[in-house]
Nucleic acid binder design. Sequence first.
DNA 1: AATAGCCCCAACCGCCTACAA
DNA 2: GTTGTAGGCGGTTGGGGCTAT
Length: 292
Amino acid sequence: MPTNTKTLSSNYSGKDDSELRRGQWILEEDSLLIRYIERHGEGQWNLLAKRSGLRRTGKSCRLRWLNYLKPDVKRGNLSPEEQLLILDLHSKMGNRWSKIARYLPGRTDNEIKNYWRTRVHKQARHLNIDTKSREFQNMIRCYWMPRLKQKIGGKTSISSAVLNQNPTISQPLEINTFQHFTATISPPPQILVQEEINMSGTMYNLDVEKQNTEADCCTSSFIFPSEPMDMSKTAQFPECPPFYCGDNNGYDMVSFNLQESVSADSAPNFPGNSAGDCYVAENNWFDSDFFM
DNA sequence: AATAGCCCCAACCGCCTACAA
DNA sequence: GTTGTAGGCGGTTGGGGCTAT
C-alpha cells in the first residue's frame, strides 16, 4: 500500500494552475488519481490527467499508478526467491525489465531495475567487473544463485540462525527445496508455453535428470572446495547450464571465501587477474544485507 | 552533535512502437 | 504512405534517509 505521508506542500498552493507539477506526489494527488481510476478505470492517461484535476502529465499519472498506487503492487524487500528469479531471467532476457517484471507478480519493472542497479551493479563495481562480462555472469550463476537457492532451502531445511552463527559450517543444499520453488512459479499468462520453454527451459521446466547430467560443468572443478576461487579460471569454463548449480553436493560454499579487502582498491584486475587468486568477501555476498 | 559521503528508490526524460486518422 | 498521438520501455537523476567519521 502507498506510504506517502507527505501533506500539502508549498509548491502545491494552486497559485499557478497552468504549470504542471513535478517531483514527489503528495497525498491529495494520490487520492485524486485513485478516485478517478476507481470511477473511470485505467488508460487514456492524458485525458485522465486533464479531467482528474491533477496538474501532472499523463505519463506521470500512469507511472504513479503503475509503480505505486495500484492495489496489487507489492512493497518491501525482494525475497530470495524473487531475487533468484530476477537473476535467472536477466541472464536470459537482459535489461528487459518489464518482461522480467511479468514473472514477478506485484513487482514493477522500476523496482526490478532499481534492484539490479543498486545491488547487482554495486557488487560488480566493487569487484571491478563489467556486469556484461562472462566472468560476472558466471559468478552470478555459479556462486550467487546457488547461494540464494541455499538461502531459500535454508528456510525449510536449515536453521539460518545456526548458519549465521557458524559461517564455517558446510551448507549442503537441498535441491528438492529449490525444485519445489521453481514448480510454484507461474509464468505470465500472456506468454505462450512454447516461449517459456525456449526462453527459460530449466527454470520452468526443470528436468532433474538433465540437471544431474549437466552438473559436471560446475562440480568441484569449478568451485574448489576449501580453496579460494580463482576467477581467472572461471573464464575458461564453458557457461554453466542454466540453473544446474542447485546441486552443490561436495562443495564447501563457505570455503569459497572471497575477501572484501581485495574487492575495490587492491584488486584492480580482478576478473582476469591470472597472477594470483582473487577473493571476494563472503560477507559481501551472502551474510551482509545483500540478500536482505 | 555535526556533517560529509553513500545508498536507495521514486520520478523524470527521451526514444520507440502501435495505431488511428 | 504520412502524420499525430498515446502508451510503453529503459536509462538517468535527484532528494531524502542512513551511516561513518
